[in-house]
Amino acid sequence: MRVLLVEDDADLAAGIARALRAEHFAVDVATNGEDGGHLGSTEAYDVAVLDLGLPRRDGISILAEWRATGRTLPVLILTARDAWSDKVQGFKAGADDYLVKPFRVEELVMRLRALVRRAAGHAASIIRCGPIAFDAQTGQFELDGMPLKLTAFEWRVLSCLMLRKEIVVERLDLLERVYEGDADVDSNSLEVIVGRLRRKIGPDRIETVRGRGYRLTEHASCA
């Protein structure tokens, strides 16, 4: 899962990014509205965290532009503004959630996971595909009822495939959601990650769809 964080407080942004990366999220940080608006308009993200009081451009105008141009990524507004009128303005502009500073990072993580899960069309927090269970609220994977240990990159790939189980996920789409914007990506890195996942969950669980990408499947049925 890849997050766009638009926050002008450098220390706060660094702390949030560090906490999200510890939970296996890929994070791109913008410290002004101009850069944040551009990234949200041109890059692929699973969710965005957007401050309102930003230099160069305010968060409401950024969000309104994203929605006007058809950008549907879930957006959580993170701001010190706690007046009801500010919240109404944010939701009218197209926000999906609203969190007031100060806040607990744990709550932010849970809210982001819920936004991503709902955007993928899953009402329940537990998603199953054969012997694999993914708790989209805690981020934990199980295989045959036992905890599944994954690296950050493995987690990002498997969570993306799990949220779209039985659907082909394009290779470029996976790459965009696994790596941060400034990452130096080797051309074979995704294949290496998928290979490691196959060794952990079974070689027939992730299908390669030639010329397109990958699909997580149970073969018989997916609950």
Rank of each mutant, 00 (worst) to 15 (best):
R57H: 08
G59Y: 03
I60D: 02
I60Q: 04
L63W: 05
L63S: 04
A64I: 00
E65L: 12
A68Q: 12
A68I: 00
R71I: 12
R71Q: 13
T72D: 15
T72E: 15
L76A: 03
L78K: 03
D82M: 00
D82A: 09
A83V: 03
A83H: 10
D86Y: 07
D86E: 14
K87M: 11
K87V: 03
F91Y: 12
F91P: 00
K92R: 14
K92G: 10
G94N: 07
Y98G: 05
P102W: 04
P102Q: 07
V105E: 05
V105I: 14
M110V: 13
R111I: 02
L112G: 01
R113G: 02
R113T: 02
R117T: 06
A119F: 10
A120K: 15
G121C: 12
A123Y: 08
S125R: 15
I126S: 11
C129H: 03
C129A: 12
I132N: 01
A133L: 10
D135L: 07
T138S: 14
E142L: 11
G145A: 11
G145C: 10
L148V: 07
L148C: 08
L150R: 02
L150C: 04
T151Q: 11
F153N: 12
F153Y: 13
W155R: 05
R156D: 09
S159E: 08
C160T: 14
M162K: 04
L163K: 05
R164S: 12
I167T: 15
V168Y: 09
V168D: 13
E170A: 15
R171H: 14
D173R: 13
L175C: 10
E176M: 13
E176L: 14
V178G: 01
V178N: 02
Y179I: 07
E180D: 14
D186R: 11
S187D: 13
S187G: 03
L190W: 07
V192S: 13
I193L: 15
R196K: 14
L197M: 06
R199Q: 15
